[in-house]
Design a protein around this nucleic acid. Structure first.
Lengths: 236, 236
DNA sequence: CGGGACACGTGAGCC
DNA sequence: TGGCTCACGTGTCCC
């Protein structure tokens, strides 16, 4: 939609230009700032130090944000919040990708071990699911993670004025329903209706919640975050 | 102060506590702010709106940062800049890891490459996952004699072995429900369960059907075609 | 005491 | 024109 050509938005330009400030000026203020309470010059000096320190802090944070934007491909908007959002989505995508790839690898290894079991199945979801069941292997450094909730589809959208419908489809594993209820309980949502359909391999979860003033993306991310946090339990 | 009690560094606590300010005060200032230049109240109102807007913006950014911290394991410091830095390092680590795993998979695949193992190479879940994301579009039909069914979101996917879940979201108009039932009746589907949630503006329709051997895309197109055909009546 | 980290309100620039 | 995003300086809290 929007071309990337005009990414010289004034936002980044402006704070990038602040870089070449000399800004080392620790001397007193040029403008006639009234030193009302204390004629002592030390207070203004500390104020200047605080100012420049805060300025450096902001610059560091912006630089890091810029670096984060650099490692994330297909960034759409130069917006600060969007950068973080894209990074989150990208990390989550990498998680799923790795999960799929690892399951596929394990499938291939099992095929290699027993070449007799060659009933080629229909879709990849079953493969990854089955091979996922057999291997309780974590991609994280910590070897925990038992039966994580695998999000197959998540759709959050407004319906009506203040009602938000959440449609979540995930693979059916051990205690998935319990964990899902934990997730939605932890979010302190105002749930109007919740329905769960259980099938042989998947779970379909449709719930209507009454939103306060939340953004949809925020809510979706909160759900994903809660599920992800529940997939990686202790971490500490 | 509820859950997540472990991360009670003073930083986040402080700004989390600011959350439960009533802060709804759009009325005039309680403190005797001197309205020297402009006695007009609208300006202060816009100022308040600006303040609350900025506050929301900060909160959103902090929420996103918090969510970013949630998807990154091995976080060391709760510092804002450190969160971004850890995220960058983690993304880099995932890049390397994925590359290694993928090369290993390719090695294994080539190793087991029998000349007859010619399955359709539809994997590389990278692209499929990306293309899976966006599909909701408002199909605004051109001619509207009578209240056409406006599809806001249509999602058809397998669940379990032979069960297909159809999620249809459309705007609520006159006789929309009747027409929807006509549509699904005309398709001669084997409906297991159908639920409709009606709201002020929209209708949410979730139905599970038992598919013979249908392809998902075919079915989705059939639904769209039937609705479209019902939108543009006989014409004969 | 200073130094770090944060939220806050405000002014400015860009659609 | 208002809404949005941003940088800035300031006050506060905690080490």
């Amino acid at each position: 939609m929007e071309n990337m050509g005009d990414m010289n938005q004034a936002y980044w330009d402006s704070f990038l230009q602040t870089e070449d400030y000399s800004w080392g000026g620790l001397e007193e203020n040029v403008s006639g700032y009234y030193d009302s309470s204390s004629p002592d010059g030390s207070q203004s000096a500390t104020a200047s130090k605080n100012i420049v320190s805060e300025r450096n802090r902001r610059k560091k944070l912006n630089d890091r944000l810029f670096a984060l934007r650099a490692v994330v491909p297909n960034i759409t908007k130069m917006d600060k919040a969007s950068i973080i959002k894209d990074a989150i989505d990208y990390i989550r995508k990498l998680h799923d990708q790795e999960q799929a790839i690892r399951s596929e690898l394990i499938l291939l290894e099992s095929q290699k071990l027993e070449p007799e079991n060659m009933d080629f199945d229909q879709n990849t979801d079953t493969e990854s699911f089955m091979s996922m069941q057999r291997s309780n292997q974590a991609f994280g450094p910590s070897g925990s993670w038992v039966f994580p909730i695998e999000i197959l589809d998540l759709n959050v959208s407004y319906v009506g004025g203040k009602i938000v419908v959440v449609r979540l489809e995930c693979s059916k594993r051990r205690d998935t329903i319990v964990k899902l209820s934990e997730v939605f309980e932890s979010l302190k949502l105002n749930i109007v209706t919740a329905t769960i359909f259980a099938f042989s391999e998947k779970l379909c979860n449709t719930l209507f919640i009454q939103a306060e003033e939340e953004d949809i993306d925020i809510l979706k991310m909160q759900i994903e975050t809660a599920i992800s946090a529940l997939n990686h339990p202790p971490l500490i």
